[in-house]
C-alpha cells in the first residue's frame, strides 16, 4: 500500500466531511444546538442529484445546481417549521436538539416511504480514472476532484463570511445573537441564510459521498455522526476547527482502512471522539466548556 495514495484519499474524504461539518458547526455557533437533522440535508441533495440525472436526464452541472439549491431550501424550511417555533418560545436549546433528532427521522422516513430504502448508485458522471501525481503516487481523478471542489466551496464560504455584510453579521451573531439583533439585523433572516448555506454545503458533500459510496436514506445519520465527531475534535462552533477535525478524521479513516483493516474504521472514529472528550473536551480550537452535545 502506498502511503501517499492513502494520504490523498484521506484528505479527499476529509475535505468532503469538512463541507458537512462546517455547516453543522455554523448552525451550532449561531443557535447553540447540535442539529442532528444536518445529515438529512445531504441526503436530500444526493437524491435530487440522483433523480435529476436518472429521470431528468440532466447533465451533472444542472443536476448539482438543483441539488444544492434544493438542499439549501429544505434546510431553510426545516428551520422555519421545526426550530423557529421553538426558539421563539423558549431560550432552552435542548428542545431544538430534540426536535432535530425528530426531523432527522422524519427526513429519513420520507425517503423510505416514498422511494424505498434500497441503495442507489449515482450514474458514473464524475471521472474515476487513475491519475499519476507527479510520479509519486497513483490516485483517482475522483479524489482530486472532490478535494478541489471542497476547497473551492470552503474558500467561497470564507469569502462570504469575511467580505460581505451578511457574512459579518453571521460572525457577530455567532458571538452573540441577541446583540446582533440589537444592531438592526433581522435575526430570522440571518438564521435562514445560515441554514441555506449549511444545507447547500451539505449537498455538495452529499453528491460526492453518494458517488464514492452509495446513496440510501440512512446515509444522513451516519455522516451526521462523523461531522459531529469532526466538529467536537476541532472545537464545537469553530469553523477552522471543523475543517481541521474533518481532515484528521478522513486521514485516520483511510490510514486505518489502508494499513489495518476497513472494519476498524468506525472504531477509530469513535475512539477519536472519546479520546478528545477525555483529553481536551473543548477540542483543538474550542473556547469554553459550555453546554455542548
Amino acid at each position: 500500500m502506498d502511503i501517499i495514495q492513502q494520504i490523498i484519499n484521506g484528505l479527499s474524504i476529509g475535505s468532503v466531511y469538512a463541507l458537512i461539518a462546517v455547516g453543522y458547526s455554523l448552525v451550532y455557533s449561531v443557535l447553540l444546538f447540535s442539529n442532528f437533522a444536518h445529515g438529512g440535508f445531504l441526503v436530500i441533495g444526493g437524491y435530487i442529484c440522483y433523480f435529476a440525472l436518472r429521470s431528468g436526464g440532466m447533465n451533472i452541472w444542472v443536476a448539482s445546481f438543483a441539488a444544492l439549491i434544493g438542499a439549501g431550501v429544505s434546510a431553510v424550511l426545516v428551520e422555519r417549521f421545526a426550530y423557529r417555533p421553538i426558539r421563539e418560545r423558549t431560550p432552552v436549546t435542548l428542545y431544538m436538539l430534540i426536535a432535530s433528532m425528530g426531523m432527522s427521522i422524519v427526513i429519513e422516513n420520507i425517503f423510505v416511504v416514498t422511494i424505498g430504502g434500497r441503495f442507489r448508485a449515482l450514474p458514473p458522471v464524475i471521472p474515476m480514472e487513475p491519475v499519476n501525481v507527479f510520479g509519486l503516487a497513483t490516485t483517482s481523478a475522483f479524489d482530486l476532484l472532490s478535494l478541489a471542489t471542497a476547497v473551492v466551496f470552503l474558500i467561497g464560504l470564507q469569502l462570504f463570511l469575511v467580505k460581505t455584510k451578511w457574512g459579518l453579521a453571521i460572525r457577530a451573531a455567532s458571538y452573540n445573537l441577541k446583540t446582533a439583533g440589537l444592531m438592526g439585523v433581522n435575526v430570522n433572516r440571518l438564521i435562514a441564510i445560515v441554514f441555506f448555506v449549511a444545507g447547500l454545503l451539505a449537498a455538495v458533500g452529499g453528491i460526492f459521498l453518494s458517488a464514492r459510496y452509495t446513496l440510501y436514506p440512512q446515509l444522513g445519520s451516519m455522516i451526521t455522526t462523523k461531522a459531529f465527531v469532526a466538529a467536537v475534535l476541532g472545537g464545537l462552533g469553530s469553523l477552522p476547527g471543523a475543517v481541521i477535525g474533518s481532515l484528521i478524521l478522513g486521514l485516520a479513516e483511510m490510514l486505518t482502512a489502508g494499513f489495518i483493516s476497513s472494519q476498524f474504521r468506525d472504531l477509530v472514529v469513535f475512539g477519536i471522539l472519546i479520546i478528545t472528550l477525555i483529553m481536551r473536551p473543548t477540542g483543538l480550537f474550542g473556547k469554553s466548556v459550555g453546554e455542548k452535545v
Binding site: 455584510k165 460572525r171 457577530a172 458571538y175 446583540t179 446582533a180 440589537l182 438592526g184 439585523v185
Partner: peptide, 24 residues
C-alpha cells in the same frame, strides 16, 4: 439604538467590524 448594559461588544471582531455592525 441602544448601547446595552455590560457593553456587549463583539469580542472576536475588530473595532472597525464592530462599528460596521452598528451601521447594519
Amino acid at each position: 439604538s441602544l448601547a446595552p448594559e455590560g457593553r456587549n461588544v463583539f469580542a472576536p471582531l475588530t473595532v472597525m467590524e464592530n462599528l460596521q455592525m452598528g451601521a447594519f
